[in-house]
Simulated scan of single mutants.
Amino acid sequence: MLSESSTATVRATLPAVGAAIGDITDLFYRKLFAAHPELLRDLFNRGNQASGAQRQALAGSIAAFATQLVERPDTRPDVMLSRIAHKHASLGVTPAQYDVVHTHLFAAIAEVLGDAVTPEVAAAWDEVYWLMANALIAIEERLYAEQGVVAGDVWRAWEVVSRTEETDDVARFRIRPADGSPAPAFRPGQYVSVQVELPDGARQIRQYSLSGGPGSALRSITVKRVHGNDAPDGEVSRHLHAEVRAGDRLRVSAPYGDLVLKSDEAPLLLASAGIGCTPILSMLEHLAESEHRAPVTVVHGDRSPADHALRTDHTALTAKLPGAAAHFWYENPADGHPADRTGLVDLSGLTVLPGTHAYLCGPLPFMRAVRTQLLAKGVPASDIHYEVFGPDLWLAS
């Protein structure tokens, strides 16, 4: 909880900081990478830096956390903190790195806001930062302990057992620990980070959902190739598609991610678009293995049946569940596809049962649209869970 004196100062300065937060985060990253170029090379996603998505997400998370401290001081944004902490754990972030961030973030605040940063203001925002940082550090320490690893030491060598071309732009890689040890357990919906060395020597990291059932001996990641010539956005997916074959090795993190099924018997709605189907398929496989009996509604949107990665699995796993139904929307459907399933996902014709828990994964506009429709159908916001591939820009909107 923020101290009383700092609460008053943060409340008074939040409009000014909020208005300048974009400039602050932009300058912060420039200062950070000038002092520590290895962080951009080997830790931060260069594509998200080039697009500005990471700066936007950082600004949104800081503003959201500070706003909650002053408006709802008896609560904490645990969903936001959990999502960030899981991503940090999958990257191997350590407590010492929060000191590095603090140094350059507060240098950026002082430079952008100038004389407005009095000692009182600096102390208040310092308290905000460390409340957020220490909360994340505590969650990350617990996540590392659950995986039985030392803080930050999440990486292992894995061997590619096989590769399957699912569509023209999607490949599935089946992998196992290279040392022959058992693959770590994971919860349906979680992901791993994959680090690859690129031609310029950078060791870039991306996250990929685990799409096989937790009970299988092998693990699978499904990678969609992102096009864009030489742009950093997609440089890892293009490398995996072009270079990685059976017998190769990958550097893979322990599994993390907070979009996981609750252990209850509530009706479920599992909605995805594009490659967002991968965590949903893991959930479906788990539900089939555990003989889930409550109703399950499966929703997916894609450009066409040919673009729908793992479409056969999507259909077959749904069919294994009693009372489950799959509804696929395609913008460019094949002949004979139902007219009311053409175009973007539209839930108006679907029955959403009371007590439904919804899990969403896909592009942000898709998830916003589905969430809006679910809220209109009476699903509480607390029962709608989502996963964002990349920085969580929902906070910045």
Rank of each mutant, 00 (worst) to 15 (best):
A254I: 12
A246P: 14
L270W: 11
A254T: 06
S253G: 13
K262W: 09
L270D: 04
L270G: 10
L240A: 03
L250D: 01
L270H: 07
R249D: 00
A266E: 09
S237K: 14
L259A: 03
S272N: 07
V236E: 02
E243H: 10
V236T: 08
D258F: 02
P267I: 05
R249A: 06
K262V: 11
A273V: 13
L269K: 11
L261S: 05
L259I: 04
S253F: 03
A254L: 15
G247V: 01
G247I: 02
D258L: 04
A266G: 08
V252C: 07
E265H: 15
H241N: 04
D264I: 14
V260T: 02
R238G: 11
D264H: 14
K262Y: 03
V236R: 05
A246V: 12
K262H: 14
A254F: 01
L270A: 10
A242W: 02
G257F: 11
L240N: 00
L269F: 15
R251Y: 06
A273F: 10
L269W: 12
A246G: 12
V244E: 01
E243K: 03
E243V: 07
D264Y: 13
H239A: 06
A266I: 05
P267V: 00
G257A: 13
D248W: 10
A271Q: 08
R251A: 04
D248I: 07
L240P: 11
A273L: 09
P267G: 03
L240V: 05
G257R: 12
S237G: 07
A242Q: 08
Y256Q: 12
L250F: 05
H239I: 07
E265W: 03
L240H: 00
L259H: 12
S237L: 06
R249M: 08
S237W: 00
Y256T: 12
V252S: 02
L270F: 06
R238W: 15
S272Q: 07
S237N: 04
D264S: 15
S253Q: 11
A246T: 13
D258H: 11
A273P: 14
G257N: 10
P267N: 00
Y256W: 08
V260M: 12
V244M: 04
P255L: 09
R238S: 12
L268Y: 08
R251P: 03
A246W: 07
L240M: 11
L270P: 06
L250N: 03
L250C: 10
V236K: 08
V252K: 03
Y256E: 13
E265N: 10
A254C: 06
S263P: 06
L268V: 10
L259E: 00
P267E: 00
R251V: 06
L250V: 00
S237M: 12
L259G: 14
S253L: 14
H239Q: 03
E243P: 04
K262F: 09
L268I: 14
L240G: 00
A242P: 04
H239R: 03
S272R: 13
R251W: 05
